[in-house]
Nucleic acid binder design. Structure first.
Lengths: 339, 339
DNA sequence: ATGAAAGCGCTAACAA
DNA sequence: TTGTTAGCGCTTTCAT
């Protein structure tokens, strides 16, 4: 009994399909008698409206596209999940498309989304999506929201993370515990969109300055990639300094993995010998020992992204909005008090 | 210039929309002259066919639904990614829906998928999807493939993981390195679908038997949940035995996190004091130290799932197929040689 | 080589 | 209170 359609219900109920439509949408007048009968029939025959037909008619697919960058980082899996949930809550479904950096597949992916006539597009943390493609979407009146690595573009809304504060608070935490020599492991700001790296770095610098601490180049490591290996290497260099740091702040939990691997090898304890703070709060809870980290609230991010999308659907030509999401400092006691 | 449609191209080219359709689908005869002109117009105006209209007409949405269970485990993020990639390669898009255990949202989620008239459904590792819902899909002639936690249902194909072997090989590896007392940390087989737990457990048992080793209840811990905490607790109990194991096999990398946290606390070294092997190969590479683990090949799993879906689309009434995917043993030297 | 026309399943304005 | 009707954008058959 595949593919029951409105006319099947109508026929079975002895009415026109317009009447069936009325009971489905609960608008217009329908006699109590017919309503009951039709509702019964819908349940019995398992009728589910065809979204493609609805979409074609209404020019609303109720689909939104989510363009992500491939990344082994659990953070994006979490954001993806949050976006999906928020979308469902608003009656939308999400088509998730992932591109790889430097593979220039974005264009065809975006065309797919246009083909589906998505009602909106979310671009998460993908610094490689060319600006023209975003503008193309906007010119087609398809609402676009960018998450995390955002651009200032007309009619394109942004959900940003307050990285400066997140970073500042983390480093302040270390300073407050008595640390004076704090290492920094981050990523080089060499991507097309770099706000994230720059803000995290300035958060570190500003925290040091706020306590009039020296900024020492030897303590600052900006690596090529967010990777375990780079975290390992940076830590190795830091710990081999004549005067190694007592604490290290890393801008990603992935770096933390590398830090711990190095420290494990040379038998140094956390936080006994070195104190650590990570960023993302993805892997830090799972580490031995668990590591204090700066968490992002995925739910809020997803929620806001959908919110902005809905607003823009309502008014495509409203000025671009930018929402800042706070980070959440998660203390897991991986920073030791020193005197 | 939003929403260019076929008739716009037709009008601009001074032909009927049927001719435009011909050049798009490269079928039927079109004069060279017109083809050039139309192709040019399509590029210039940025025409992209409306999938909803195509779908309505062809009764093929080119969408597949992916029903997952919410899980903090990275494994499912990876499978999800692999499924998406394989789908794209076959010209499909994926609607990913995630349900929470015990929330009984599966029914409405499946109705959403029916509403979208998805061409197929993949159910990944979700033991809570009621059997009737799966059967409902099958009865609507919507191909269904189950991944990892599968059921024997008519017309429902399965992609399974060779957990018995995966587990067997891992434990054999420990035995070959000279270990005689090997702890087991797994999950209690209390889910609606339990093959996974049972096979992993028997893999362990059979490996021990293959070397005529004793099976000791005290070494076997079947926990309530795949969680860091349960891994921690089980390890604590194991290590406090009068005669603790020299090696521990865990059926999930999540357990490994807990193991390492406990061992870190009491200053025991891996593999110096205890040898470890995990399962999933998700977190094990990130641990300090990196842990040997049984990996699943997500790509193969995704690829096979799509393959089976395509086959079933071609022949809905073919007998159900079950494909077994091999695990991959990843040696990271976390098992010590003992004499 | 090209066009006309029907129809996919639905919505909504208009008539009755 | 209900039915009729005209599309939404596309594919495809059948004429021409």
């Amino acid at each position: 009994m595949p593919n029951v359609k409105m006319s099947d219900i109508a026929k079975a109920a002895g009415v026109s399909h317009a009447t069936v439509a009325r009971v489905i949408h609960k608008n217009g007048y329908v006699s109590e008698e017919n309503r009951i009968k039709i509702e019964q029939l819908i349940a019995d025959l398992g009728y589910v409206p065809n979204r493609m037909a609805q979409g074609l008619k209404s020019a609303q697919s109720k689909l939104i596209g989510h363009l992500m960058l491939f990344s082994p980082n659990m953070l994006f899996a979490k954001i993806s999940y949050a976006v999906n949930q928020s979308a469902i809550r608003q009656g939308f479904h999400v088509l998730t498309l992932t591109s790889h950096k430097h593979m220039h597949e974005e264009e065809s992916l975006i065309n797919e989304l246009i083909g589906q006539r998505v009602d909106g597009v979310i671009v998460t943390s993908n610094p490689f999506v060319p600006q023209e493609l975003i503008l193309k979407l906007a010119s087609l009146n398809i609402p676009v929201v960018m998450i995390e690595r955002t651009r200032d573009l007309p009619y394109v809304d942004q959900v940003r993370v307050d990285d400066h504060n997140g970073s500042f608070d983390a480093v302040r935490h270390m300073i407050d515990k008595g640390h004076r020599r704090i290492g920094y492991i981050g990523r080089l700001p060499t991507l097309p969109v770099n706000d994230v790296e720059i803000h995290r770095f300035h958060g570190y610098i500003d925290a040091l300055k706020s306590d009039h601490l020296d900024i020492e180049d030897a303590l600052i490591h900006q690596m090529d990639e967010y990777s375990v290996e780079d975290g390992y290497r940076a830590t190795e260099t830091l710990m081999n300094l004549d005067n190694p740091p007592t604490a290290i702040f890393a801008t990603s939990d992935v770096f933390v993995c590398g830090e711990l691997q190095y420290l494990y090898q040379c038998g140094k304890k956390v936080p006994g010998d070195v104190s650590l703070v990570g960023y993302d709060d993805t892997l830090s809870a799972l580490m031995a020992p668990p590591i204090t980290s700066v968490g992002l609230s995925h739910e809020k991010i997803g929620e806001q992204a959908l919110q902005l999308l809905m607003c823009r659907m309502a008014d495509t030509k409203a000025p671009a909005q930018s929402v800042m999401i706070n980070t959440v400092f998660i203390d897991r006691q991986s920073v030791r008090e020193i005197h």
